[in-house]
């Protein structure tokens, strides 16, 4: 509260530790010189450059896709192709056999006789 009693007092006093700043007038340049000179936008160059980049990327994408396709065709020979082939064939046969065993379950009947009504008379008998 003591500090705020006379708030106008310090306006007239000089700060003790602060050095007096010398105020010098800065010459202001003319407003026109502050605005940068407007360069003409090189639209043609941008389009040519951008188009080139896009075309390059497009070709790259197509090449990658083509490579992916080809990589499926070209396969490195495995160390023992005959053994691998035999094993996969046998595994396939086992899978087929398993499917057939499941289908052969006699207790499962997926085609029971249709549950159609035998009493479809207008005058009931």
């Amino acid at each position: 509260m003591n500090d705020s009693e006379n708030q106008t007092q310090f306006i007239e006093e000089q700060p003790m530790l602060q050095q007096e700043k010398s105020v010098t007038a800065i010459p202001t340049p003319p407003i026109d010189s502050l605005i940068p000179e407007k360069k003409q936008f090189p639209i043609k160059k941008v389009f040519v450059f951008g188009g080139g980049v896009c075309l390059l990327l497009f070709i790259l994408v197509l090449m990658v896709m083509g490579k992916g396709k080809n990589s499926l065709k070209i396969t490195e020979p495995s160390p023992s192709p005959k053994t691998t082939q035999q094993l996969s064939d046998f595994q396939k046969s086992l899978q087929l056999f398993h499917t057939d065993v499941e289908r052969a379950d006699p207790t499962v009947n997926d085609l029971p006789y249709p549950p159609v009504n035998t009493n479809l008379y207008i005058i009931q008998r």
């Binding site: 046998f90 087929l96 056999f97 065993v101 289908r103 052969a104 006699p106 085609l111």
Partner: peptide
């Protein structure tokens, strides 16, 4: 028909088991 299907399915699976 259903009986024949059931018999044949087991016969077929048994044949496969024999081959395997």
């Amino acid at each position: 028909s259903l009986a024949l299907i059931k018999i044949s399915n087991i016969q077929s699976a048994t044949d496969q088991l024999g081959v395997l």
